[in-house]
Amino acid sequence: MTDQPTQQPAERADIAAFLASHLNGRTDEELSTEFHQLLDAVRTHGKKGELRITVIVEPPANGVESAPLPIGVESAVKAPKPTPVKSLYFLDEEGLPVREDPRQMAIEFRTAHATDTFKDA
């Protein structure tokens, strides 16, 4: 039997702990605020939303192996918005949007005279 060196599994970085401690907790606070705002918008508008968190890791400066790694965290929120109110339009002969149907005959209206006398039936 040959003794093979036992290889220790590499310790993994805990992403939740990293985000909680990044920039002394400021990143965690900002992400939590954005997440809460997203939840409110989804509940209010009944539509789906999205929060993207991007961790950016750059190589060490000048390729020095023992140099520190610059790590940044960015986030992007796509919160749902209310559905805009629409209005109906017709296209006129020039192709411009107009409120009244250009094919419809116009009827002139007159104002009726006001009266306070009523006829008994």
Rank of each mutant, 00 (worst) to 15 (best):
K48I: 05
T44F: 05
T33Y: 03
D92V: 01
V98F: 11
L19Y: 00
K119G: 06
A20I: 00
T6K: 15
E11L: 12
V73Y: 02
D92C: 01
L31G: 00
L23K: 14
E34F: 06
G95S: 03
A121Y: 10
L51G: 06
R12F: 01
L38S: 07
I53L: 08
E29S: 14
V73R: 03
V77Q: 02
M105Y: 12
Q4A: 12
L39Y: 04
R26T: 11
E50Y: 02
T117Y: 11
K86W: 07
F90D: 01
V64A: 10
T2R: 15
Y89Q: 04
E108R: 14
N24V: 05
Q104L: 10
F118I: 09
E34A: 15
A121C: 07
D14V: 01
H22I: 03
P84R: 06
K78I: 11
K78T: 15
D3V: 13
L91S: 08
E58A: 09
D3A: 15
P84G: 02
L69E: 02
G46M: 04
T117S: 14
Q7K: 14
E34L: 15
H36Q: 15
H22E: 12
R103P: 08
Q37P: 08
P70W: 00
D3C: 11
F118T: 11
T6E: 15
S21E: 14
A106Y: 10
L39V: 09
T27P: 08
P102R: 00
Q104W: 03
E34M: 13
L31H: 00
D116N: 14
L96D: 08
L96S: 11
T44M: 11
T33C: 07
P9F: 00
E100I: 03
S32K: 13
P97K: 01
E74V: 05
S66G: 09
L51N: 07
P84E: 04
S32L: 07
R43C: 03
A76E: 13
S21L: 09
E65D: 10
A114D: 14
L31F: 00
P82G: 09
P68E: 03
V64N: 08
D14G: 05
T54G: 10
D92K: 06
L39H: 08
N62T: 03
K119N: 09
A61H: 02
Q7N: 13
P60Q: 06
S32V: 02
H22Y: 07
P82Y: 04
Q4E: 14
V55P: 00
E93M: 05
R52K: 10
L51V: 02
A10K: 08
L88K: 09
D28L: 07
S75L: 10
R12H: 01
N24H: 12
P5I: 08
P80K: 01
S75I: 04
P97L: 02
E11M: 11
G72P: 00
P84N: 03
P70E: 12
P68S: 01
P102L: 00
K48R: 12
A16T: 12
A67C: 08
I71F: 01
K119M: 05
R103F: 11
L19C: 04
P97C: 01
G63M: 04
P80G: 05
E93Y: 06
V64H: 04
K78S: 15
A13D: 10
V55T: 07
E29T: 12
N24Q: 13
Q104G: 05
I15L: 11
D3R: 14
T44H: 10
Q4G: 13
F18R: 03
E100H: 07
N62Q: 12
D120C: 04
A41H: 02
